[in-house]
């Protein structure tokens, strides 16, 4: 299976708000722990190693590009 990159969440604004609300009143360290748990829970739900690798690659590539553009 390949990773889905077309819109797949029915109510994107609701999800985004729920994600941000999950972190309300948490400090950086607590947020980091919550994020880590979230990734682990979702990764297990997905299960497919090919999809997971693809997601890991995309996340890192975008992140590195962002850092590069900030340097300029």
């Amino acid at each position: 299976m390949t990773i889905r990159l077309d819109p797949n969440i029915e109510a994107p604004d609701d999800f985004y708000q729920a994600l941000i609300d999950t972190h309300r009143d948490l400090d950086e360290a607590q947020s980091q722990l919550v994020n880590a748990k979230l990734i682990l829970l979702l990764a297990n739900h997905i299960g497919d190693m090919q999809v997971l690798r693809e997601a890991l690659r995309l996340a890192r590539e975008d992140g590195v590009q962002l850092l590069r553009s900030q340097e300029i």
Binding site: A29, Q32, L33, N35, A36, K37, I39, L40, L41, N44
Partner: peptide, 19 residues
């Protein structure tokens, strides 16, 4: 971050078989 994932794994493992 490695420590955060480790701690997250341990905390999840208490309740969820997958972890």
């Amino acid at each position: 971050i490695s420590r955060a994932f480790r701690d997250a794994t341990l905390q999840l493992a208490e309740h969820h078989a997958f972890a």
